[in-house]
Amino acid sequence: MIISLIVEDNALTRDSLKYIIYGIVGLMISFYLASYLIKKIGKDPRNILPVNFARRIRIPLLLFLLAILLWIGNISDFSNSEEYEYVARHVIIALLTISITWFLIVCLKVFKERMLRKYDVSKVDNLKARKVYTQFTILENIIIFILVILAIGITLMSFESIRSVGVSLLTSAGIAGIIVGLAAQKAIATLLAGIQIAITQPIRLQDAVIVEGEWGWIEEITLTYVVVKVWDKRRLVVPSTYFIENTFQNWTRKSADLMGTVFIYTDYDVSFDAIREEQTRLLEGTPLWDGKVNVLQVTDATEKSVEIRILLSAKDSPTSWDLRVYIREKIIDFIRINYPHSLPKTRVVLPQQDQNPAETTPPPSV
């Protein structure tokens, strides 16, 4: 676009074309030299730069060098075209803003990766790791959002026409601000809820939660919404405000290990000690149990059956679910095979008649 303007104004001489060719060649040489040096530094594990840092800043580096080239061409005044200077000035500002913003975002992601390297969420006791991951993820989204808004604002304000429009709008921003504030109330509340989640952390990444009757794990947290991975691999997308304004269950708020409950209903003549011994044998023979809690209690007795509650413990919510299902199945099999007469039953007692009805009938009167 810049070259076409120069050609139309007949301001491009042979020397100017030579400067452009030299500039392009110098741009390519500078780009490959800078990429090589950054890649060389990244190969040393003692340096802070990651190995793929050169590849991640390739595009912003190219945009930055192109802006420098245009700036050198503009101050050298190799063209007398005012249109070229006008367009070049705005293109330089736009390229510098985009490249610097891009570079800051890449550096932010590198810093996040460096800080999170010491935290492993795959461990059993990963509460602190999940807390740090959640904070850095949300704060990263906030900073990126602010950087992008600032970059767009700086680029647009470089145009005098847009700047004058902005000044005129600010003079009458009283009523407009109220209208926009009311219209964007939901959006602003959602953004503030995302920031509040980052600070107070009612939920963290990989927390086991129950939301809207659905049981799953927190898979992603953004400024405006939260993604819950349901147990059947569905995804539940919930606004951030939901976790601030509504009640929900968080099974891993303090720790990852959980208590599991199994209810069994039997007849009155079952042997509780035998079931307790079988439960202990089953738990000691499965890797699903963490070895902490093993309790069997009779929690209720009705006219039809006895309620037995089994308390178990596991390292996390998925393991607790598998352990509960396993114990329920095996205990039912144990009662069915060894105590079949102790399964729940309904009793019906009929009154017995000891005498013959004919004998109890009084004789007819004469």
Results as ranks from 00 to 15, higher is better:
202 P>R: 02
45 P>W: 02
167 V>A: 12
178 I>P: 00
139 L>I: 14
261 T>A: 11
346 T>L: 15
313 S>E: 09
365 S>L: 08
330 K>W: 03
18 K>I: 10
232 D>H: 11
153 G>P: 01
76 S>V: 10
205 L>W: 00
277 E>S: 08
218 I>P: 04
13 T>M: 04
202 P>E: 11
72 I>W: 05
145 F>Q: 07
355 Q>T: 15
67 A>W: 05
20 I>A: 07
82 E>Y: 10
116 L>Q: 08
28 M>A: 14
250 N>H: 01
229 K>W: 06
64 F>L: 15
9 D>T: 01
189 A>H: 05
83 E>K: 12
226 V>P: 07
126 N>T: 04
206 Q>T: 05
152 I>G: 14
176 A>H: 02
258 L>C: 14
240 S>F: 03
266 T>Y: 02
269 D>C: 05
334 F>C: 02
307 E>W: 00
291 G>F: 04
159 F>N: 08
336 R>C: 05
309 R>K: 15
193 A>G: 03
249 Q>S: 05
99 S>L: 04
248 F>S: 06
164 S>W: 01
65 L>W: 10
10 N>S: 11
127 L>E: 08
62 L>I: 13
208 A>W: 01
157 M>F: 11
108 L>H: 04
298 V>K: 04
80 N>A: 07
34 A>F: 10
103 F>C: 10
19 Y>C: 09
220 E>T: 11
335 I>L: 11
235 R>Y: 14
39 K>H: 10
5 L>F: 00
348 V>M: 06
59 I>N: 05
50 P>T: 07
253 R>T: 07
22 Y>D: 06
252 T>N: 02
236 L>E: 13
212 E>G: 09
211 V>S: 06
282 L>D: 04
175 I>H: 00
120 D>Y: 02
306 V>G: 04
197 I>Q: 10
263 F>D: 13
268 Y>C: 05
114 R>C: 03
148 V>T: 08
166 G>M: 15
175 I>N: 08
73 G>V: 06
62 L>H: 02
143 I>Q: 07
300 D>L: 00
304 K>D: 15
40 K>R: 14
349 V>F: 13
170 L>Q: 05
149 I>S: 15
269 D>S: 15
151 A>R: 01
325 V>H: 12
270 V>D: 07
7 V>N: 14
105 I>E: 05
278 E>S: 00
26 G>H: 06
165 V>F: 03
332 I>Y: 11
172 S>C: 03
114 R>D: 10
239 P>A: 13
50 P>Y: 08
104 L>M: 09
52 N>T: 04
339 Y>E: 14
224 T>Y: 07
118 K>A: 14
6 I>A: 12
158 S>N: 14
4 S>I: 10
185 Q>C: 00
147 L>F: 05
207 D>H: 01
165 V>Q: 04
46 R>F: 05
229 K>F: 06
201 Q>L: 13
365 S>W: 04
237 V>D: 08
180 V>R: 13
310 I>K: 09
189 A>Y: 01
48 I>T: 03
137 T>N: 14
21 I>N: 03
1 M>F: 03
28 M>P: 00
